[in-house]
Design a protein around this nucleic acid. Sequence first.
DNA 1: TTTGATGGTGTATTTATTACACATGTAATA
DNA 2: TATTACATGTGTAATAAATACACCATCAAA
Lengths: 229, 229
Amino acid sequence: MKEVLPKFNSTFSIDCVLFGFDEGELKILLIERNEEPFKDWWALPGNLVEEDESLDQSATRILHELTGLSDIYMEQYYTFGDVNRHPQGRVVSIAYYALLRLGGDKVVKPISNYAKQAYWRNVKDLPKLAFDHQQIFEKGMEKIKRRIKHQPIAFELLPEKFTLTQLQNVYEVILNKKLDKRNFRKKMLSFGVLRDLNEKQYGVSFRAATLYKFDKRKYAKLFGKEISF
Amino acid sequence: MKEVLPKFNSTFSIDCVLFGFDEGELKILLIERNEEPFKDWWALPGNLVEEDESLDQSATRILHELTGLSDIYMEQYYTFGDVNRHPQGRVVSIAYYALLRLGGDKVVKPISNYAKQAYWRNVKDLPKLAFDHQQIFEKGMEKIKRRIKHQPIAFELLPEKFTLTQLQNVYEVILNKKLDKRNFRKKMLSFGVLRDLNEKQYGVSFRAATLYKFDKRKYAKLFGKEISF
DNA sequence: TTTGATGGTGTATTTATTACACATGTAATA
DNA sequence: TATTACATGTGTAATAAATACACCATCAAA
């Protein structure tokens, strides 16, 4: 049944924009390339898609190889296919973004040979990037700006227990504008998807804030109601 | 400088969901395939990407070959890459949608050999589709449902001069719900992007309605203000 | 001239958004 | 133990936006 397709002279890759939130800053993971082309340049983590894996599987694998993490919110958002985007041939790249919980911990183990090292970089201060990765990053940034207004993605960037101030910081840094504290809290709590844990921060050198948790069950019940965060 | 990429055993295609609005119905263009696989099945128009064209160029070309039209609002919205989506090999398909002005006229000339014929079909009454085209269609449908709320895409489906009732029909059929006439008009006119042409319909067997035009210049001035249509 | 079908209009109610300032609690330290 | 530094936590009034709702006007055709 397998006949031959007229063209097989192309390939495709996945590139990932891995967002993380740490110390009040939105960061993405960049690798320093160890191979041509663009050896020694900074680039988004990415790789070629294997024959026997779907695009989503491939994105999941690449993320796992790079960070050791699984069960992460990832989403395909655009495909880049300019003729000369890759100097070695026709490579169409499918872009994904992921939202990671950072937290002074072990994330990031660039085991693979194609990367010398990997660093988290503040999105407001990125170096020059290889290929068309600047464009890929910008489109990803736009995407999460839109997405955060309608979907509960901010929680993916925070630890399971978080304070309202931390949550507000995520919104402020992604939307790139200050929000009013009282209005923000009123609105967030009004959705009824945050559970007050009756628990306080500890180890902070000021008044400890109440910890909340995102309640997925309650959110699921609202589905279809088009919340506007 | 050109080295060899490790894998070149794959290919990619474009599939298009062409939306049109006619006689109060939202329709898409389907072709009846004349080639294996899925010979004689209904399918979305699509084709393989050529070596020397970008994805956007390819989408534009395919649309032009099929309809004779150019200068059409098209947008890439998702890429489908399940391993077995194409029975003859690994084919990743980049999906685009386009919004066309129908109007009893000449659109649609399925000249190519791979299609027997092409028909406009109401989205509420589609036949079984080849490949994963049902899924591709559904995702496209979701996309324009979201998009129409924030971007002025409804106008792309209407003739240059249109009545407010026609415009409301477009919203109703895409959002799949009835809207209140007075509230709809109040809101639409409040944006200040519709120009009253001081002109009436003619040839209708009832009271003729005022014709309006979408004013792109005024809309452009609002840019960044996040209108919610 | 009557009928049928669509065009066109306003107001009151409810809900959401915005603007805005000060007392409280905690840890560090003087 | 008093003071300081710092982030937490709270309410109300004003404005803007969304919603609900019904009838007369106009035109062509019969």
